Amino acid sequence: MPFSAGSNTDLLARAFGAQLEGMWKQAVVIENRPGLPGTASVAKAAPDGYTIMLTSNGHSIIGSLNQSLNFDPIKDFAGITQVASQPVVMLAPIEGPKTVKDLVDLAKSKPGQFNYASAGVGSAGNIASELFKQVAGVNLVHVPYRGTPEANISIMRGDTAIFMSFYNASGDLVQSGKMRALAVTAPKRMPVMPDVPTMKEAGYGDVDFDGWFGVFAPVQTPKPIIAKLNKDLATVIADPEQRKRFTTLGVDLVGSTPEALDKLLASDAARYGKFFTPAAAAAK
Rank of each mutant, 00 (worst) to 15 (best):
R157N: 15
N168C: 05
S56Y: 00
A217W: 02
L36M: 10
P191F: 10
I237R: 03
A234I: 01
S170R: 03
S170K: 04
F246W: 06
M190T: 04
S56I: 01
L261E: 02
F3S: 01
G35P: 06
M23S: 11
D72W: 05
D10S: 13
Y167D: 14
A124Y: 01
S154D: 09
G137F: 08
A161W: 01
R243A: 15
T257E: 06
M179V: 10
L54I: 01
K263L: 13
G63Y: 08
P144G: 09
K133W: 04
S41D: 14
K101R: 15
M179P: 07
S7M: 03
M156P: 05
S109V: 04
S154M: 07
W24M: 12
G79C: 03
R33H: 10
A107M: 06
K231T: 12
K108W: 08
G211M: 00
I94P: 01
E150K: 08
A183F: 11
K108G: 08
H142S: 11
G38Q: 04
A217S: 12
L20N: 03
G120S: 08
G63P: 08
V184Q: 09
K263E: 15
L20M: 13
G273R: 06
K223F: 08
A46Y: 03
D76G: 05
R146E: 15
I61K: 03
W24N: 07
V184E: 11
R33D: 12
G214H: 02
E21K: 10
V42I: 13
M179D: 07
K25A: 14
